[in-house]
């Protein structure tokens, strides 16, 4: 079950949020509960200490009139509940889109300068959070985890085309459908990522599940995203 937690220092706005959330859960009869509505971040963190198994949908005000900002609170929440869904409630002036999305991987944000929009947006967020939560309940997908700065990125194996060692020592380029990500590592240890991963060349580890075709004459593998990776003569034998 998904718990909804609110942290907002202004009592009027907090009450309003509570009402919108509680009404919507009741009307739609969702498997959700408004478990906490706090006016300071410490209360939220204490709750998470006491209930460590919580998967939450968090509505956080950015400016909490507290030494810990909503963004800092979100980072702390991430460490305790890494699949939690975070939604920032903020004024236009405090809107920091990239920080929300990139740093704390917030699910969404609601701008409170347009009061008439708030209710609709809160409902939307609840719907999306519920949907995602239900999807996550299914069989766990295999994921590849990698550190970028302080952040841990987690990538579904199905999205990986291949790994390529970069001409720069110790860097690896991870090729996905329409994106590329560099990280530190060695190509050798990537053979062990999963059984569908195969070292097909001195500098490539390919995900067999995403191969479209193999050109034996040119010794190239074409992936489902039309990208091409190389294959050595020796490794070619493994593909039949």
């Amino acid at each position: 079950m998904l718990s909804v937690l609110i942290c907002e220092d202004d009592p009027k706005q907090r009450e309003r949020l509570e009402k919108i959330v509680a009404d919507y859960i009741m009307i739609e009869a969702l498997d959700m509960e408004l478990t906490l509505s706090a006016d300071n971040p410490i209360e939220v963190l204490t709750y998470l200490e006491e209930h460590p198994k919580t998967t939450g949908l968090y509505f956080l005000d950015v400016d909490l009139k507290h030494e810990m900002s909503g963004i800092a609170l979100a980072s702390e929440i991430r460490e305790r509940d890494d699949s939690g869904k975070i939604v920032f409630v903020t004024t236009h002036g405090e809107l920091s889109y990239l920080t929300f999305i990139y740093k704390v991987e917030a699910m969404d944000y609601i701008v409170k300068d347009q009061p008439e929009e708030i209710e609709r947006r809160v409902r939307e967020c609840i719907q999306v959070a519920q949907k995602r939560h239900l999807n996550e309940g299914g069989p766990q997908q295999k994921r590849f985890k990698v550190k970028v700065g302080e952040k841990t990125r987690s990538i579904d194996h199905r999205d990986i085309m291949f790994f390529e060692s970069s001409p720069v020592p110790h860097k690896i380029v991870l090729h996905m459908d329409n994106s590329q990500l560099e990280f530190y590592g060695s190509i050798k240890e990537l053979e062990e990522v999963g059984e569908s991963f195969y070292r097909c060349h001195k500098s490539f580890v390919v995900n067999r599940d995403n191969i479209k075709s193999i050109d034996r004459a040119k010794r190239e593998i074409e992936m489902v995203n039309e990208e091409v990776c190389l294959v050595s003569i020796r490794a070619l034998k493994a593909f039949r």
Partner: peptide, 30 residues
């Protein structure tokens, strides 16, 4: 939107812009 985000280990510089829908794929661009 250009952003700089700091964490304990690194500075992340993000440049994000709208682009045409038929932009060539990343591996072509590279």
């Amino acid at each position: 939107t250009v952003g700089m985000i700091q964490d304990r280990k690194a500075v992340h510089i993000i440049v994000q812009n709208d682009c045409r829908d038929d932009l060539p794929r990343v591996h072509k661009l590279k």
